[in-house]
Amino acid sequence: MLTNPSIRRSVMLLCFGAAGLLLAAEWHIMRSRPDPVATPIRPTRVSQLATLLRQSPLPNMVREARLVIRLGPKKLEYYEGETLIKQYDIAVGQADWETPVGHFSVLDLRENPLWKHPITGKAIPTGPENPLGSRWIGFAYDDEYHIGIHGTNQEELVGQAVSHGCVRMRDGEIQELYQKLAIGTPITVSPE
Rank of each mutant, 00 (worst) to 15 (best):
L2T: 09
S6G: 11
S6M: 09
M12F: 04
L13M: 13
L14A: 15
G17D: 15
A18S: 11
G20H: 08
L21D: 14
L22E: 12
A25H: 05
E26Y: 07
W27T: 13
I29D: 06
R31K: 13
P34K: 15
P34T: 15
V37M: 05
V37N: 07
T39M: 03
P43G: 04
T44F: 13
A50V: 12
R63M: 11
R63C: 08
R66W: 10
L67H: 01
I69A: 04
R70A: 14
L71G: 01
L71M: 10
E80Y: 08
E82F: 10
T83G: 06
I85C: 06
I85W: 04
K86S: 09
D96M: 11
W97E: 03
E98R: 15
E98S: 12
H103S: 13
F104V: 03
S105N: 09
S105I: 10
D108K: 09
E111V: 14
N112E: 15
P113H: 04
K116N: 03
H117D: 13
P118W: 11
P118E: 06
I119G: 01
T120Q: 09
T120M: 09
K122F: 04
I124E: 14
G127R: 03
P128E: 09
D142G: 10
H146L: 13
H146Q: 09
H146D: 03
I149M: 03
G151V: 13
T152V: 02
L157R: 08
V158S: 04
G159T: 03
Q160K: 15
A161K: 02
A161M: 00
R170P: 00
E173C: 07
I174D: 01
Q175E: 14
E176M: 07
E176F: 04
L177T: 11
A182N: 11
I183M: 08
I187S: 00
